[in-house]
Design a protein around this nucleic acid. Structure first.
Length: 382
RNA sequence: UGUCGUGUAGCUCAAUGGUCGAGCGUCAAACUGUUAAUUUGAUGGUUGUAGGUUCGAGUCCUACCACGACAG
């Protein structure tokens, strides 16, 4: 068994995932390193922050540096100097996010490279091949992700096409040591989510991902899907919620049995001056921090909070010095990894339910979603 | 002291005699399997001052003020 649930509390589980490049304790947050680098951080720094496994991207790595170079280096691990586990996304998300630069067909997706306009035809088989050359510990099937809200026919089409692509993906012979995850689609409809599972459950998967969430729907709709899905997810497989999310989203998803997460929020927000704290996102560029000698978070043990004031960090962003991006990324990843560790500890200790209750109250206030924020604004106006 | 030139947003500059704009700055907001150290929005003006010509002046005329260049 490569995945073992060591303790559970409701649907929440603490587990161990054994991969070719080491073991991973779950639930786990996987920082996004699209191009074979978590922007601003070295592998050693990532490890020190508590990173267990990284995410890389098939589509981007295929464009640059390309297969020839990756083959020459024997894969991404040795190329980037990271000896821990790597999960690669299949390029499915780019099908969705690259918008007008692509053309969908049943056979695959025709992309136009944003770099030089070259045509790239990404198929389930090619995605599998690229991920094998990359040498990731976990490869994802190529799926079709759509934005929400969507017409029910479009959601169903995405579910069915993703399943057909998954079938082709799993026909490609496995590479030794590489796990493969299937992906559920279905938008916010539980009926389509169930259909997606029925069409997918026969494939020889090592893990199951939930895709197509956090793509425009309100927080409570995402939670609704996760709650409905929780009893359906096969308990012996690791569950991966793709692209999610805020600390609050993650807490809720773990309650619903999710084991793995990835998200650009901690790293992207960092570069835009957004620091994650227990009290919400702190925008260091705001003038209220101009003279503030306090650290971002007094209770945080990261290098950034141990050594630098808000005033200094704001200064770094004002003058666009790279160190600002670095320190913010350091802080945010430390925050995410520490948060996940707290959750793992609470499940291990058998107190997840109580932990969830107090954290939920805090985070609901600290991280209201777009829909809730507009409610709050309307209340203020009255 | 004289001659010439220049005065428009915090800064650098636009604007046939016909509603003074832009970039940067400043202040905010957004960001969920990264096309993103990005994007969006807001703020910001007695056009150096005082007169004059004109239906109408940032623009033309006069004086003054400030700054710059050159000449003594």
């Amino acid at each position: 068994m490569s995945f073992e649930v060591l303790k559970s509390d409701g649907f929440a589980r603490y587990g161990k995932l054994a991969l070719a490049h080491g073991n991973v304790e779950t639930p786990v947050f996987m920082p996004v390193g699209t191009y074979g680098v978590v922007k601003t951080q070295t592998p050693n720094e990532l490890k020190a922050l508590g990173t267990q496994i990284l995410l890389g991207n098939t589509y981007h790595l295929y464009l640059r540096p390309g297969l020839e170079l990756l083959k020459q280096f024997g894969g991404l691990h040795s190329f980037m100097g990271w000896d821990g586990p790597i999960l690669t996304d299949s390029g499915g998300f780019q099908v969705f996010s690259l918008g007008p630069l692509r053309k969908m067909t049943e056979e695959g997706v025709l992309f136009r490279s944003p770099l030089n306009g070259d045509e790239i035809f990404l198929t389930p088989e090619l995605s599998a091949e690229i991920q094998q050359v990359i040498g990731s510990d976990i490869a994802m099937v190529l799926d079709e992700c759509i934005s929400l809200p969507a017409k029910s026919q479009d959601v169903e089409n995405a579910v069915r096409r993703s399943a057909r692509w998954a079938e082709r993906f799993f026909r490609v012979p496995t590479k030794v040591g590489q796990k493969r995850y299937a992906i559920l689609q279905g938008g916010t409809s539980l009926a389509f989510r169930k259909l997606s599972w029925e069409l997918t459950c026969g494939f020889p998967m090592d893990g199951l991902a939930i895709g197509g969430l956090s793509v425009g729907e309100p927080h409570h709709e995402m939670i609704h899907v996760l709650e409905g899905l929780a009893p359906l997810l096969p308990p012996h497989l690791p569950h991966y919620l793709m692209g999610v999310g805020t600390p609050r989203d993650i807490l809720e998803a773990i309650r619903c049995g999710v084991d793995q997460f990835d998200c650009v929020l901690p790293t992207r927000n960092a570069r835009n001056g957004g620091f994650f704290t227990p009290h919400g996102l702190l925008n260091i560029r705001n003038s209220e921090y101009k003279l503030d000698p306090k650290p971002i978070d007094e209770n945080c043990g990261c290098e950034c909070c141990q050594n630098y004031s808000r005033a200094y960090l704001r200064h770094l962003f004002q003058v666009k010095e790279i160190l600002g991006c670095r320190l913010a990324t350091t802080h945010n990843l430390y925050y995410y990894h520490s948060f996940l560790k707290e959750i793992r500890d609470s499940i291990k200790a058998g107190n997840f339910a109580a932990f969830y209750k107090t954290k939920k109250a805090q985070l609901t206030e600290a991280y209201p979603d777009k829909w809730e924020r507009s409610q709050i604004e309307n209340t203020d106006k009255e």
